[in-house]
Simulated assay, not measured.
Amino acid sequence: MLFRKQISIKPYQVGYLYVKNRFRRRLEPGIYYFWDWVNEITVAYLPAQRQLCTVTNQEVLTKDAIALRFSYLIEYVIVDGERFLAHFDGFSQGQNFYPHEAEQVISNLSQIYWRDAIAQLDSEHLNEHRQTLLATVPDTLQHRLAEYGISLLCLTLRDITFPKTIQDLFAKQLEAKIRAKADLENARTTVAAARALKNAADLIKENENIRFFQFLETMTKIAARGNHTFVIGELPQNGKH
């Protein structure tokens, strides 16, 4: 039993069996036993599920030459373990997968496409298009990463950081837009009120009854302030009543 080796492949893993440093076969999740007389068997453990990594603080220039920093998320999966292991060390890590070298390659290649995409937009419109930037992974990038046995599932822009001076300018621009919108609403309200007053004045001018009631209202207000004598009608002429 000293020469019998047990290999355990977890449900979220795929094993790659090598004998004398030559690939023999792929091991699905399960427990395997092999006779290993002179310790010639090695197994690389690779993840079967999707992997997620973050690339932070990448500097880029926009179309209007504004320098900014951005971070993004990468979701990928290893689709060809043999090709992947031909480029990266998957043996020294045991059953724990820490693909630092692989993720470095992915981030370096993907940055090229992010920079090109952001460089096509003005800084003012960048936030408006952040959801559509690289909505689909470019075929060229997929082909490049396929050489490493990797398939990109999605690239997602996480955040954008503008220089402080540009942030202040954007804030002032936003304030000006809000102020202009408020002034426009006030102007519309004023015009609507003036139009209503004009319509009311025209209505009073053309309607004798409304004018009479307005006259009575005025007389009532004057009478409420003290004793007054009102003469309604024409004054008598030549002493005649």
Rank of each mutant, 00 (worst) to 15 (best):
Ala192Trp: 14
Pro163Ala: 05
Val137Leu: 07
Ala48Trp: 00
Ala44Phe: 02
Phe91Tyr: 06
Asp80Met: 09
Asn127Val: 11
Gly149Thr: 06
Ser8Thr: 08
Gln58Gly: 02
Ala135Val: 06
Gln120Ser: 13
His228Ser: 05
Gln120His: 15
Glu75Tyr: 06
Asn57Glu: 13
Glu82Ala: 10
Gln104Val: 06
Tyr16Arg: 02
Lys164Arg: 08
Val79Trp: 12
Glu206Tyr: 14
Lys5Ala: 00
Ile222Ser: 11
Ile66Ala: 01
Asn96Ser: 06
Leu133Glu: 04
Lys181Ala: 13
Glu59Asn: 11
Asp80Val: 06
Arg211Cys: 11
Arg158Trp: 09
Phe212Arg: 14
Cys53Ser: 10
His125Ile: 09
Thr62Met: 00
Arg188Gly: 04
Thr156Ile: 07
Glu124Gln: 13
Gly94Phe: 12
Gln6Ala: 07
Asp202Ser: 08
Leu145Val: 08
Lys10Gln: 10
Glu75Asn: 07
Arg26Ser: 12
Val105Asp: 00
Leu17Phe: 02
Leu169His: 04
Tyr12Phe: 06
Gly149Glu: 03
Leu17Lys: 07
Leu126Glu: 03
Tyr45Gly: 00
Thr136Tyr: 11
Leu27His: 10
Glu175Lys: 09
Trp35Asp: 03
Tyr98Leu: 05
Asp202Ala: 15
Arg26Leu: 14
Glu75Asp: 08
His87Gly: 00
Gln173Asp: 13
Ile7Phe: 02
Asn108Ser: 11
Ala193Trp: 13
Asp64His: 08
Leu109Cys: 09
Ile112His: 13
Arg225Asn: 14
Phe213Gln: 12
Ile204Val: 15
His125Asn: 08
